[in-house]
Design a binder for these strands. Structure first.
Lengths: 169, 169
DNA sequence: ATACATGCAAACATTTTGCTTTGGC
DNA sequence: GCCAAAGCAAAATGTTTGCATGTAT
């Protein structure tokens, strides 16, 4: 489980959730994956979560725990990452975090070092332009980037010792 | 050892190496650390390296291995990070990477996903401005950020199966 | 003299793999 | 039926800690 665990129940309120899921399943099939219950649920959970999840987060979720072993989830994530359906990010925690990668979408995150809360940033990323330049200058191809901000959220800034969100330990 | 290990022998050619080291030692002392041989060498290695190093990289270096146990290096890194003398970054590897943090300096990195080579970017980071905005909007304080680019270096792009740099395995 | 730093070994957490069985196509 | 996926358990990797001892201040 992530160091600072939160409930992920709400998730993104995407109107076209079912449709997006179906799209991902199609992409997965195109990548050679079989349409299994575990794959379905991993994608569903990642789509619902508005933030990156760890392997532990995923495989502990009752909806997934009921139908797939952790190693299965792990292998799914590896394959999904290889085919660019998910992205793995560091986020300064010991565990790796995964988030869904939709074509044309890119997200940066803001993390509170006090309580571990992860917020997805909605503003457009200012780095796209630099990426072009960099590619030209360095000769690197297939450039991607990770941009993450760290700081103290308003509550943690205030020096309060109370947890500022529903931490579960 | 990092997944893609390189020789770090050359390092940055800083003219004022000795002076910088002394400055860091001063800052460390101010933070309450004692001036030990291990601390000296950890800082020296981090200053020389132009790229983030893992705990394994550091403690395997003969100059440090000779005089400090890995757990000592680990504890030094933890303390140095707490006092902002070093920064820990993710870099998509299993191990944590550490690099020196000099006042007023900030570096982003470009990593080849093929051979693991890490390049430090010299251009100024375009994110500083956004950081201000973000702080105002979100109420977060003490904002920092990590920006890392991933791609394939010219050699790895070419599809050659030859290693493009002095990998040690 | 005291408190911090160290070495060594053990505990932990997380990832990764081997092998057999199951199930999608 | 064939090959990928899954389950289980063990190995591998990297981090973290406990405790007795050494050492900077």
């Amino acid at each position: 489980m992530s160091r600072h665990h939160h409930h992920h129940h709400e998730g993104c309120q995407r109107r076209d959730a079912a449709q997006l899921l179906e799209q991902c399943l199609q992409r997965a099939k195109a990548a050679g994956l079989r349409r299994t219950a575990a794959l379905h649920e991993v994608l569903a959970l990642l789509l619902e979560a508005c933030q990156p999840l760890t392997l532990a987060d995923l495989s502990a979720d009752p909806r997934l725990a009921a139908l797939a072993d952790r190693s299965t989830v792990y292998r799914l994530l590896v394959k999904l990452e290889q085919h660019a359906l998910v992205r793995r990010v560091g986020l300064h925690d010991r565990a790796a975090y995964y988030h869904i990668h939709l074509p044309g979408e890119h997200h940066d995150y803001l993390i509170c070092e006090g309580c571990g809360r992860i917020e997805r940033l909605e503003q457009s990323c200012p780095v796209e332009a630099l990426e072009q330049t960099l590619s030209a200058q360095s000769g690197f191809t297939n450039l991607k980037h990770d941009l993450t901000f760290y700081g103290l959220c308003p509550h943690c800034s205030s020096g309060s010792s109370q947890p500022c969100c529903d931490l579960v330990h």
